[in-house]
Design a protein around this nucleic acid. Structure first.
Length: 884
DNA sequence: GTGCTCACG
DNA sequence: ACGTACGTGAGCACC
């Protein structure tokens, strides 16, 4: 009857579930005035707005599951038996979601004894008979069996705002099956998450193969007798009943006793008034903003009156006892060189701003900035300190750095953007990109009032969110991580960056010439061998030469062609002389472009490189270093290591001094796992890798350990820290997967505490949604609940690794802060210049080296108290090269 | 802008 | 059966 009618069907339970876990990391931020969590509600509504806009349905229905028992549990009482309980924080939101849907003019429905799937199947079927187009939105793939020419099934991917569309063509492309055959596939393979069995040893691959041959479960069993004798045939025969039962369980009912007519589903559109009240009750600012209704002006950020930051204003500021928020706005991402564009100071009531930096020469303002009794809030202390330093100002008295707090609360808030943080709290402040534009359009607004108003908005947001964020920090037991580690560290890092490390450019120039000659030599040889000239740096062109012209065997492929990575080339070394040449070329070319040439671009007129440490980026709590990255200067191969000869102390008669923690991650593991054998090894200061080798190879003494055994044990220790898999270990040390699995088993037998830690931490992550370090640094792991095997496994390995890597990061951060204090206290001239995850690099007068050799290890090994000792090794020399 | 490769811990 | 080591940044080719 109607070509242009369109029905939108949503699986309420599965989408709510996904919405909940997609925003699980912000669970505590989304709480309304009544203490009810609203994260799933928020994400669900966000998705709904996008879907309604895209689909423009005329009819809508959201189906929910009615209860625990269904006709399926009657057929098979373990159906969905082992499924985790729905979290309480989600349970309380389900009625709210239904309420909101009502206000949005969308019908909701549930039916005793039936799942949402069956309601959707039935209504989709009805609508199809009526010639309507149907779109189904769901969080899980079970519904894809419903796809037809008229019915499209869209499955949420990555959260809920993106979907993957399943049409019959798409199913064919992905699986090589028709949608209906998905039921047969599930019958054969079963479903782990719904907890019903299929045929033993039959997974997706086998199921698809069988169905391509025989069409359906019925078809398979008609021909099962004709199959060749095989394990598969045996399993099929043994599990015939299971296959048919599972197929039934997997089949969505298209004729459930649903008491709805299509006309009941007509989309009504929003009830503005009720929806408005509802959003207000839920504190949904973003949605209120979109509703285009007048708002409470007290909360409105749109216009803030900014007064001039002049001498009169400064007088008021310095006289005041109030806390002030300070915005020093840089433009560009390198605050060591890019310009400052604006300055704003506010006590929350008055906002004083200027774009004229002569004001920073004002002595009263200078004194106020450096006065530690004058309390200040800001966003990004390190950047602010660095910017002000360039104008001869010191900064002190900062107690709230919103950047650091946001990152500690959730390591995913690592975009260094105040607008993005504000959005997490439902406050509509433009992001840097939204305000300044991006790409070629990126620019400071011509009208300075526009800019100052933006800065005022930032200041206001900082005031508005400070209490809430600090309270969250306390709830998470992270206040001392912030007060005692991250905030003091930001000052230490600022000092290190500002100080910079001296580089001898002539030394780099000299290397550049040497390597250039070497490169062109190898280049010519490669061309000769290959019989043609080509770009060796192009993996594509290189692939053609190696695998087509020279016909070398293809070991690995990438998405786009042949892989030419080191591990592939290593295996092809003896097949053709050109392979070794390419390896040599690659090595030198990397050193040349990234380091010899690359680093020179960063040397400033003071002959120094000033890197930027990102303190709020990594998921584990480590630092990272950019522009340039000084944490990956070559050391493993000698040609590369030469680069370090260009890094020198800033004065004659000074030296570079370095100190690193020995096996800090394994010591952390020994501590947090409490494993007796591993702790003993460290307490007795044994060679840990040899000791591990002795244990896993069942030897009586470390004297029997061969170098190869030690090497393998070392790799296993690393693997353990990374959240081991037999495959990963086998690849790394070139043994079979079986052998690797045996190593791991033996390892866990010898170190049962480690095994227990691995099991417990994954369980902890599942129950709490996050893991934490010894200093309570948190990392949320929503993927721990993923249905996807790979995604879930990755999250599990992360759960194992993060507390280890993160605690090691905590430890060195404490050591850096203590070290800086100690240098000051002892009035040493030595400067802390660099940090490379487990080591600190200093420059110091030669005369101070003996002092440092005692002092630095003692500060580092006493940074925290673990159940095993920390061990520190030091070295020094004229250049960084010699300090190792 | 994305993918590949490779430098570090 | 699935396809894997953990955490980063930068240069180059190619679209």
């Amino acid at each position: 009857m109607s070509k242009n009618k369109k029905l939108l069907l949503i699986d309420g339970n599965s989408v709510s579930f996904r919405a909940f876990f997609a925003m699980h990391n912000v669970l505590d931020k989304f709480v309304n005035g009544d203490g009810i969590h609203t994260n799933a509600l928020y994400a669900f509504n966000n998705m709904l707005e996008i879907i309604l806009k895209d689909e423009k349905p005329t009819h809508t229905l959201v189906a929910f599951d009615a209860g625990k028992t269904t006709f399926r549990t009657k057929m098979f009482d373990e159906y969905k038996g082992t499924r985790d309980k729905t979290p309480q924080e989600l349970m309380e939101q389900l009625p709210l979601i239904q309420e909101m849907l009502n206000y949005r003019g969308i019908k909701t429905y549930q039916l005793p004894d039936y799942e949402a799937d069956d309601i959707i199947g039935t209504m989709a079927h009805k609508a199809q008979l009526d010639d309507m187009d149907v779109t189904i939105i769901t969080g899980d793939r079970d519904l894809t069996q419903l796809a037809t020419d008229k019915i499209t099934v869209k499955v949420n991917v990555k959260g809920v705002t993106e979907t993957e569309s399943y049409t019959p063509e798409h199913v064919k492309e992905k699986l090589g099956l028709t949608p209906k055959q998905i039921i047969d596939m599930k019958g054969l393979m079963g479903d782990a998450s719904d907890h019903y069995p299929g045929v033993e040893k039959v997974g997706e691959k086998t199921a698809i193969k069988l169905l391509n041959q025989y069409g359906s479960v019925e078809g398979i069993y008609e021909h099962v007798d004709e199959m060749k004798k095989s394990k598969l045939k045996e399993h099929l025969i043994n599990d015939k009943d299971k296959a048919f039962l599972s197929k039934k369980l997997a089949t969505i009912d298209l004729d459930a006793p649903v008491s709805l007519n299509l006309s009941d589903l007509e989309y009504q559109g929003d009830n503005q008034e009720q929806l408005l009240q509802f959003y207000q009750k839920m504190n949904f600012r973003t949605f209120l903003d979109r509703m285009d209704v007048p708002q409470d002006s007290a909360e409105d950020l749109k216009e803030i009156k900014v007064q001039a930051l002049d001498e009169a204003a400064i007088e008021k500021i310095v006289q005041s006892d109030k806390v002030h928020t300070l915005i020093v706005e840089g433009f560009g991402n390198n605050y060591h060189i890019d310009p400052i564009v604006g300055l704003l100071i506010s006590d929350g009531t008055d906002f004083y701003g200027t774009v004229d930096f002569a004001i920073l020469e004002n002595e009263k303002l200078k004194a106020w900035l450096s006065d530690s009794t004058k309390e200040k809030y800001l966003f990004d202390n390190k950047a602010t300190v660095a910017l002000l330093h360039r104008y001869g100002c010191d900064l002190s008295g900062v107690t709230f750095d919103m950047l650091l707090v946001a990152y500690l609360l959730d390591t995913n808030d690592n975009k260094q953007d105040i607008g993005l943080v504000a959005k997490n709290y439902n406050i509509n402040l433009p992001s840097e990109e939204e305000f300044y534009g991006k790409g070629v359009k990126k620019a400071v607004p011509e009208d300075e009032n526009v800019l100052l108003n933006f800065l005022a908005q930032k200041a206001k947001v900082i005031f508005d969110l400070k209490d809430k964020m600090m309270a969250e920090l306390k709830d998470n037991d992270q206040d001392s991580l912030y007060d005692e580690i991250e905030l003091p560290l930001s000052n230490v890092l600022a000092e290190m960056e500002i100080k910079g490390i001296t580089v001898e450019v002539p030394k780099l120039k000299e290397m550049e010439n040497t390597f250039a000659t070497k490169l062109s030599e190898i280049e010519q040889k490669i061309y000769q061998e290959a019989g043609k000239e080509f770009n060796i740096n192009s993996p594509k062109q290189l692939g053609v030469v190696l695998f087509e012209d020279l016909k070398l065997p293809v070991i690995k492929k990438t998405k786009t062609g042949y892989s030419t990575s080191v591990d592939v080339l290593e295996k092809l070394k003896d097949k053709s002389p050109v392979v070794q040449m390419v390896l040599d070329y690659r090595q030198i070319s990397k050193i040349q472009s990234t380091y010899v040439v690359g680093l020179q671009k960063f040397v400033q007129p003071d002959n120094k490189i000033h890197t930027i440490y990102l303190q709020t980026l990594t998921q584990t709590g480590r630092l990272s270093s950019i522009e340039p990255n000084l944490q990956n200067i070559p050391i493993r191969i000698d040609e590369g290591k030469q680069i370090r000869k260009a890094f020198v102390p800033q004065h004659k008669d000074w030296e570079i001094f370095s100190a690193d923690y020995s096996q800090v991650e394994l010591r952390v593991l020994a501590h947090i796992s409490g494993d007796e054998h591993m702790q003993e090894a460290f307490n007795e200061d044994y060679d840990i890798h040899a000791h591990t080798a002795m244990r896993i190879f069942g030897l009586d003494s470390t004297d029997e350990v061969t170098p190869n055994m030690r090497r393998q044990a070392k790799a296993t220790n690393f693997g353990i820290v990374y959240g081991i898999s037999d495959y990963g270990l086998s690849q790394n040390i070139g043994i079979s997967r079986k052998q690797a699995a045996a190593f791991i088993e033996s390892y866990f037998e010898q170190y049962p505490g480690v095994k227990k830690y691995m099991d417990d931490i994954v369980k902890y992550a599942r129950e709490n949604g996050y893991v934490e370090t010894i200093m309570h640094r948190r990392r949320y792991l929503p993927d721990i609940h993923s249905k996807n095997f790979n995604v879930r496994n990755f999250a599990q390995r992360t759960a194992m690794n993060t507390p280890i890597q993160g605690s090691a990061a905590d430890i060195i951060k404490v050591a850096m802060i203590n070290m800086q204090k100690m240098l000051e206290k002892e009035k040493l001239q030595a400067n802390l210049l660099l940090q490379v995850h487990d080591e600190m690099i200093f420059e110091a007068p030669k005369s101070e080296i003996p002092t440092l050799e005692k002092l630095v290890p003692s500060v580092m090994d006493s940074a925290v108290r673990l159940d095993v000792p920390l061990k520190v090794e030091t070295a020094h020399g004229k250049t960084w090269y010699e300090a190792k």
